[in-house]
Amino acid sequence: MEFSVNHPILFLLVGIVISVVLAQSVYFLVKSVRRAKQKGMDMKKIKKTIITAAIFTIAPAVSIVIAIISLSQSLGLALPWLRLSVVGSLSYEAIAASNAASGMGMKLSDLVGNMSASAYLTITIVMTLSIMVGIWLVPLLAKRIQSGLVSFEKKDKKWSDLLQNALFIGMISAFVGYVFCDIGRLWQSENGVFVNSDGEMFSSTSGLIPVFVMIAAALVMVLCGALMKLLKWKWLNDYALPLSMVLGMASAIPLTAILGG
């Protein structure tokens, strides 16, 4: 059979894998909703959790579709569809694919419209083996880590609560720091232009865009909090994070026009 990166059989195979992954998500959803009912949890709270999670997911999921579009130029549509629906993320997958192509003595761009079945397999195997640690490590570690946390809680409840907050704050602090990573362009530019190590050019103020976007999203969140308190709009609680994220993202459009890309 003649190979093509967009051969219908590849879509069929990817569809099968994704169906299994979808089934796992549905299984855990049903299992946890049943458990919530058994425990007599407030089902309104469960319904709200479902609606908020669904709404919150839309914008990040669309950005994953964009990542699939960008990877599909070299790898066809089926493989990026598989890799970004299961385990991967754009940066990891793009690097793994590029390293696999280098291993064959080529560049990924050389393979556009010219991919053999052998090259496709090589890239798929490198992506699969490189990026799947969590899948097998979670079954080995999850129970031990969770039991450890439970015994922590029994010994010292206050420290256990603090530890949980410390985990969340540690993760958030890394991303808050990341938002400022390009701010150095302000003082590293010449004549208002910053050139990075790959020769790409940016305006000196472009590093401020993520900072202002973060501030805009934070302000929307604060405004939602104020509206919830002042006007008793409790329903807004479920939409505050997706709303702040989407409005923050939207603010990037005029900010980029003003500050330069």
Binding site: A59, P60, V62, S63, I66, I172, F175, V176, Y178, V179, I209, P210, V211, V213, M214, I215, A216, A217, A218, V220, M221, A240, L241, S244, M245, V246, L247, G248, M249, A250, S251, A252, I253, L255, T256, G261
Partner: peptide
Amino acid sequence: PAFDQMLPALFGGLG
């Protein structure tokens, strides 16, 4: 530009 800035927008609200 909007999709480029998804993470700052997300962590602005959450942060």
